[in-house]
């Protein structure tokens, strides 16, 4: 008995986390057996079992695989482009006040505008399909990354800059040796935000501006009252978000090995 208890203590967090998910699914599964749902809700209700079955069925369908591939491509290209643009622009804006003064109003205005506003224009310009969604993903992910990178650069330790300068470093070396490593925690935090925005971009773009992708599949299924598929798509998106967030966490751990470990306090 004691042994089980100590094993539980060691793994308390995952046990509680997973346990609660299982409990949640069980309750959900049994709701229709216990409660009589109002007619409107009952018609479009589904249970974890049905969703699971749908997911299994979908995973063998080549059509679904195609839609998944489209969504993943949009996500990767859009996010990749935003990283490629946000990092250099953020670094440069942080280092040169003139450029910052030029770009700042633009960045602030764009960032404060909801992404959805651009969709009609983007669809007109890039057509109904994958590229409109890529652009929406790009716009969504760009600004959190850009703003965080900028903040990271602004938060530079003056002493470290002086140290590296005193050894005759040029601006490029200064970026590489001090500015970039110093900004990394900010950039990682920005990346985490950007991933959320990018997934949102995929969903929004496919809901309204595409005839391909998992988001389109969900919108189409909802139009035909096929609730299982809607939920299955939702779970797919949740799973992708989770995996990506964990990947960033891993990256962060790798890059911050030099940091003091968190000291446990009371």
């Amino acid at each position: 008995m004691n042994r089980y208890l100590s094993q539980y203590r060691e793994n308390e967090e995952p046990i509680l986390g997973w346990g609660f998910i299982v409990l949640f699914l069980l309750v959900w599964e049994f709701i229709p057996h216990v409660v009589t749902l109002p007619k409107g809700l009952a018609l479009f209700f589904t249970t974890p079992y049905h969703i699971g079955a749908k997911l299994v069925e979908m995973s063998t369908s080549s059509e679904v695989a195609f839609h998944f591939y489209v969504s993943a491509t949009e996500f990767v290209i859009g996010l990749g482009l935003s990283i490629a643009v946000a990092l250099p622009v953020g670094l440069v804006m942080g280092r040169f006040n003139t450029l910052n003064a030029m770009f700042d109003p633009f960045v602030t205005a764009f960032n404060a505008t909801p992404r959805l506003v651009f969709l009609p224009l983007v669809v007109l310009w890039f057509g109904f399909g994958i590229w409109s969604t890529v652009v929406i993903v790009f716009i969504g992910a760009l600004f959190p990354l850009l703003i965080n990178t900028y903040e990271g650069v602004k938060n530079i330790d003056r002493v470290l800059v002086n140290v590296v300068r005193s050894f005759g470093a040029n601006e490029w070396q200064l970026m590489k040796i001090v500015v970039l490593p110093n900004s990394l925690p900010y950039i990682i935090a920005g990346l985490r935000l950007a991933i959320g925005r990018a997934i949102l971009g995929v969903v929004v773009g496919e809901f309204f501006g595409s005839d391909q992708g998992i988001g389109y599949l969900m919108a189409a299924a909802a139009g035909n009252y096929i609730v299982d598929v809607v939920f299955a798509g939702l779970i797919l998106f949740m799973a992708i978000s989770l995996v990506m967030t964990m990947a960033v966490k891993k990256l962060e751990d790798r890059l911050s090995r030099w940091r003091p470990e968190q000291v446990k306090t009371f």
Partner: peptide, 26 residues
Amino acid sequence: AMVFQEFGLLPWRTVLANVELGPELK
């Protein structure tokens, strides 16, 4: 070369890499 009051060590570099900073930049 300067020795700084607040040390000014690059926190993400090891002792060795910190000492090598000047020659590396050269």
